[in-house]
Design a protein around this nucleic acid. Structure first.
Length: 274
DNA sequence: ATAGACCTGTGC
DNA sequence: GCACAGGTCTAT
């Protein structure tokens, strides 16, 4: 599921309701969800902590807590983090429930069990969760055309794989990479180093625009993605190419195609993208 | 760079 | 039965 726009939408939804709540206790239904520390330590350490704020780095959600601790959550493909009343029936595949004061709970469901929780001191949690090698945030001022130009220079990797590398840009996933390449008119298999200045500028602008667009529409829901209050996104109604193979290109009407690039399905228009 | 691993489910 | 699914890590 979640790429930058989805994780950002989860963050914004939880930011309205979570701060101020204290953790009374945790049900770890499937202990494997805890990446750090041990499941028993996690349950012990999180008890009594209060949520104080939220943050996001790439696809990692940061829930800042009292006592200088941070709970990092990565939803991977099918993770769902929901703030809901204690009385709400748990969704299928619920692996962890943090019981909060005030009659609420924070429930984590994940069909494929890829997502992970990490709890550590504020300044150590990034390293532990593996988020210390992330590239710049694409919606920040750090992400410039010049940065992308220098980064792509000499790279043989396909543009698609180049965009998905979290060390290059944090938070871009399969949907938004395909959408950005379409908007920039670049086929996904073009070597990143073969893109000229004008290509890179278009790619940069397309990436920023499509990610902003995704955030504005509160993410893309195919089957699993929901925000922190269980609401689906709406960007699936505005996708140009992703998941639309065999359908007409919104620009030229040519039938869209799909190819595997770098092990991931890539959707493109054979006429608009070169 | 590609394949396999991690998991469970859906659709053809 | 097989392919495929929003992600990332490891091994070859």
């Amino acid at each position: 599921m979640p790429e930058l726009p989805e994780v950002e939408t989860v963050r914004r939804s939880l930011d309205k309701v979570l701060p101020g709540h204290r953790v009374l206790g945790t049900d770890l239904i499937w202990p494997g969800v805890v990446g750090y520390p041990t499941p028993a330590e996690f349950v012990q350490n999180v008890k009594g902590l209060e949520f104080v704020g939220t943050g996001r780095r790439g696809k990692y959600l940061r829930l800042e807590m009292s006592a200088g601790k941070t709970l990092v959550v990565h939803l991977r493909m099918t993770g769902q983090l929901r703030y809901q009343p204690e009385s709400t029936q748990e969704a299928p595949h619920t692996h962890a429930v943090l019981h909060l004061d005030g009659g609420y709970k924070l429930s984590y469901a994940d069909q494929r069990k890829f997502g992970r929780f990490y709890l550590a001191e504020h300044d150590a949690v990034a390293r532990i969760a593996g988020m210390d090698k992330l590239g710049p945030e694409p919606l920040s001022e750090d992400f410039t055309v010049g940065y992308l130009l220098g980064l792509a220079n000499g790279r043989k990797a396909p543009a698609k794989s180049f965009l998905l590398d979290q060390r290059h840009i944090a938070g871009v996933g399969n949907i938004y990479a395909d959408e950005a390449l379409f908007r920039a008119g670049i086929v996904p298999w073009r070597a990143a180093g073969s893109l000229n200045d004008e290509d890179i500028r278009r790619l940069h602008d397309a990436l920023v625009a499509v990610l902003k667009n995704g955030v504005d529409y509160r993410g893309t829901t195919f089957s699993h993605y929901v925000d922190g209050l269980g609401e689906t996104g709406a960007f699936q109604e505005h996708l140009a190419v992703y998941g639309r193979e065999g359908k007409p290109c919104p620009k030229c009407g040519t039938l869209l195609e799909r190819k595997r690039i770098g092990g991931r399905s890539s959707h493109y228009c054979p006429k608009c993208q070169v």
